[in-house]
């Protein structure tokens, strides 16, 4: 189970995330699993692989918003870089970024 301590250990800035949740730890922790929903990352990967960069941008942008609000810093960093490339419509090789995304996502997911 993800705890505040564990999240901090994994590089999150939970004190920042908690401020937006009126310092209600329970409430904050109830929101956290939503940020690691596997299906959303799968959908993002699929859109990138299909070359649907416009919709991939919307998915990445939405994830970025959630991750930044909850201060899930490591995953936010990856998704933020991806979002900016997608926003610009860059047709680059997203493979390494996707791999990095999954690597970080899994670190959290296994602790859910």
């Amino acid at each position: 189970m993800l705890t505040i301590e564990k999240l901090d250990e994994l590089g999150c800035d939970t004190s920042d995330g908690l401020k937006r949740c009126m310092d209600d730890r329970e409430f904050y922790l109830s929101l956290v699993p939503g940020a690691f929903d596997k299906k959303r990352y799968e959908a993002l990967e699929k859109k990138i692989n299909e070359g649907d960069l416009k919709n991939a941008f919307e998915d990445a942008h939405a994830l970025k918003g959630v991750l930044s609000n909850l201060a899930i810093t490591p995953l936010f960093d990856v998704i933020n870089r991806m979002t900016e490339l997608l926003r610009a419509g860059e047709k680059v090789d997203y493979g390494p970024l996707i791999a990095e995304m999954w690597e970080v996502q899994k670190k959290f997911e296994i602790n859910l």
Binding site: M22, F27, L31, G34, A35, A62, G65, N69, L70
Partner: peptide, 13 residues
């Protein structure tokens, strides 16, 4: 907001 996390967070605030 289409993001449930964001909606709930603002609702809380």
């Amino acid at each position: 907001d289409d993001e449930p996390v964001n909606r709930r967070m603002l609702e809380k605030i």
